[in-house]
């Protein structure tokens, strides 16, 4: 193989103008982080709500939650992003479709919402499992003290369920960050897309993707450490895993 290694490439000016190849990576990283954080907020919010619905006694609400989960969980993320990005503007009324297509940063919003909803189905399953793992008597104890059902969830069920599912939520956090790379297919200039752009401009494919790999490793390691710290902070003496 006649490959010309050039680790100094990152300090060369990029043909896009206005900065170096390293700057391209940084701008990609920014977008990756922004998409991941916002998608994770949606995933946690929607996931918690749907997870709670799935645990309620009402069979219709449970069915609704299950439908949501199965739809979003069983269709590949790539297909979902294509549906949101390419298909949705064509099936809504024309004026809305035009508005969607003219939206600046449409790939960004699509990635945030698409990834957020996709991950929310996974979070919902975790939350529902966490709730189901609690002793049945906890609900009875909350109600017996005069709490309403929402209060019982708020003060008794959810604080404990979240503690139970914190470790699996760590992997879902990391999955969200990793899955954000799929958004390059709808034209979002996130980290993986920027690494590919560097490769196309400079032909330094190994350097570009080595850099991307190391950056992904670094942010996921940081995310893991932060979640571990959170787990430690939330740990209750005499309860749960030591």
């Amino acid at each position: 193989m006649n490959y010309h290694w050039n680790w100094g490439i990152f300090w060369d000016a990029s043909p896009e103008g206005g900065g170096t190849y390293a700057d391209m990576l940084v701008s990609g990283l920014r977008i990756t982080l922004a998409v991941s954080v916002l998608a994770w907020v949606i995933a946690l919010g929607m996931g918690s709500a749907v997870g709670v619905l799935r645990s309620l006694p009402n069979p219709w609400l449970r069915r609704l939650a299950n439908t949501y989960i199965e739809l979003l969980r069983n269709v590949p993320l790539l297909v979902q992003l294509f549906l949101w990005y390419f298909v949705l503007p064509e099936v809504v009324p024309e004026a809305w479709g035009d508005w969607l297509k003219s939206l600046r940063d449409a790939p960004f919003y699509t990635a945030v919402i698409g990834l957020g909803l996709f991950m929310s189905a996974r979070v919902a399953v975790q939350i529902a499992t966490g709730i189901a793992a609690l002793p049945r008597g906890q609900m009875a104890a909350g109600l017996a003290l005069g709490f309403t059902l929402p209060q019982t969830y708020r003060y008794v069920i959810l604080p404990n369920a979240f503690r139970v599912v914190l470790p699996p939520l760590t992997s879902e956090t990391i999955n969200t960050i990793k899955n954000s790379s799929v958004a390059l297919t709808i034209g979002l200039a996130e980290l993986t897309a920027r690494a590919r752009a560097i490769q196309e401009f400079s032909f330094q494919v190994f350097e570009a993707f080595t850099a991307a790999t190391l950056i992904y490793l670094a942010i996921n390691t940081i995310a893991t450490v932060l979640m571990r710290l959170l787990e430690r902070r939330m740990r209750v003496p005499g309860y749960g895993a030591k």
């Binding site: 002793p135 008597g137 104890a141 109600l143 003060y155 604080p159 209750v236 309860y239 749960g240």
Partner: peptide, 16 residues
Amino acid sequence: RARVGMVFQHFELFPH
């Protein structure tokens, strides 16, 4: 229920 005290077989204190 707020006026009826209840004690359970398995205590059911809130662990957190």
